[in-house]
Design a protein around this nucleic acid. Structure first.
Lengths: 251, 251
DNA sequence: GTATACGTCATTGTATACAATTTAGGTTCG
DNA sequence: CGAACCTAAATTGTATACAATGACGTATAC
């Protein structure tokens, strides 16, 4: 197995400058991935459920091969984990626990803190654009908060847009990718406990305003701290809910 | 495709309490993964090289199925990426660039900063144990620094042990996993430019001492900042080298 | 009654054939 | 000389058969 040999090929050049990430033609694998993710996020596939390749393949009317690929993706994104039972690699839907949420929120807080720091160091002009978008999203959140209309999905989307704006503005590809993965995990907690979280929306809106000010004035330390605080407070709010409701779907 | 149905199975119970993560007997896939990773890290598979399933399978004398799995793992860990060309998912060995290094180092600095913060908040007794280990590793590094003996591999291992000690002490599973992945990417840069970095070892040793002090005294802010600074200075040192040597293996 | 050995079944691991689709090269026409 | 098209080859996507392994239940011995 030693010896050198690289997959040498002509490899003339990279044609298009890869404008943006296009979607490939619909695969079975992608189909399976989306189906399973949807079911996990919505809770139809409960945490702890065994993911059996053959079962899934049957129900989706595809073969095990694309299912296996989809499971790899789900594992990469943290939706399923290897059941540490013994030695056999058995996959289960990742459990939702308070400890896991703390882990997750702390990570995303610091990751966004980093991005926020970088965003606050952008040239004034670029920052202005970012700030404008942030204000739009936060205004919409404030509106929902005042209305007391419980639209968890919309709130989630707006909150995500707010935070993603900061990431897009300055984060590198790796940071964006990690953020995407971690945030997709947060979504599971959000969906499960959203009903009880939404009440506290106004608090989050206030924290967002602090972040906006920091970015607007180009203060990296303040921006970083603002993001960290927002997530830290978020996990405190979530923990309170989990304590009162119990750890759903973890057995 | 809607309708509910979970992978219902007897699922009597989880037998063993999962003592620890044993290694599965997975043969071909794990073999392929290790082989390919080794070749990428050592540079025998140059950045930008196309990863052709059939080629790899032939050369490793296995079928495409385990190769595909191995490629998924490599992709998860960031060793290979989807060539952004167009829509087709073609995998290439991830390029090494100065921008990517900056992205990487900033991320790991903040992630370890988080872990360092948490470690510094541990009970005094636990911190003492951590500090003792940190001092051992750093003493060994200091020794190598004084000897001016160029043992990049050993230096890398010791530095990794130092940082990993902090992670193990307080990081949750998710944080540890992300750290593992990101650090494995750092290893590629380290190996490629180690010869020129080793000279600056004494600087890193000094920074480590600052971190040790922070943990020892239970100062979270100082610990976080110390880790961030260590990585930030690290990428500055690396950038200098890359500037003088050029971006190897990126074309 | 308990424990150990054995056999069966569920599940994942691997190989391979075939289908689909993109890429490359060359030819023709403007 | 260049552009559009067309064909052939390279590569990945999918299905399926079979092998290997570990878990569980049953029977038998003590």
């Amino acid at each position: 197995m030693p010896s050198e040999r690289k997959s040498a090929r002509p490899q003339t050049e990279q044609p298009g400058t890869s404008l943006s990430g296009k979607k490939s033609r619909s695969n079975s694998q992608e189909f399976a991935f989306k189906q399973l993710r949807e079911m996990i996020v919505t809770g139809r596939l409960a945490p702890g459920t065994w993911m059996i390749e053959a079962d899934i393949a049957d129900r989706l009317s595809i073969s095990r091969t694309p299912v296996r690929g989809a499971l790899h993706w789900l594992q990469r994104d943290g939706y399923v984990i290897a059941a540490g039972n013994g030695n056999k690699s058995r996959l289960i839907v990742a459990p939702l626990t308070k400890d896991d949420a703390r882990d997750l929120y702390a990570i995303i807080g610091h990751l966004e803190g980093l991005a926020g720091r970088q965003t606050a160091q952008l040239p004034q002009k670029a920052r202005a654009t970012v700030v404008r978008r942030l204000k739009e999203f936060n205004a919409a959140l404030a509106q929902l908060s005042r209305d007391r209309r419980s639209e968890p999905n919309r709130i989630f989307e707006l909150d995500l847009s707010f935070h993603r704006t900061i990431m897009e503005a300055s984060a590198g590809p790796r940071l964006k990718e990690i953020h995407r993965i971690i945030h997709s995990q947060v979504e599971r907690y959000w969906r499960l406990y959203s009903g009880a979280i939404v009440n506290k929306l106004s608090l989050s809106v206030a924290e967002h305003n602090e972040i906006i000010k920091a970015v607007s004035s180009g203060d990296p330390d303040r921006a970083e701290k603002g993001l960290q605080t927002n997530w830290q407070n978020g996990v405190e709010r979530l923990s309170t809910v989990i304590d009162s409701l119990g750890e759903r779907g973890n057995w």
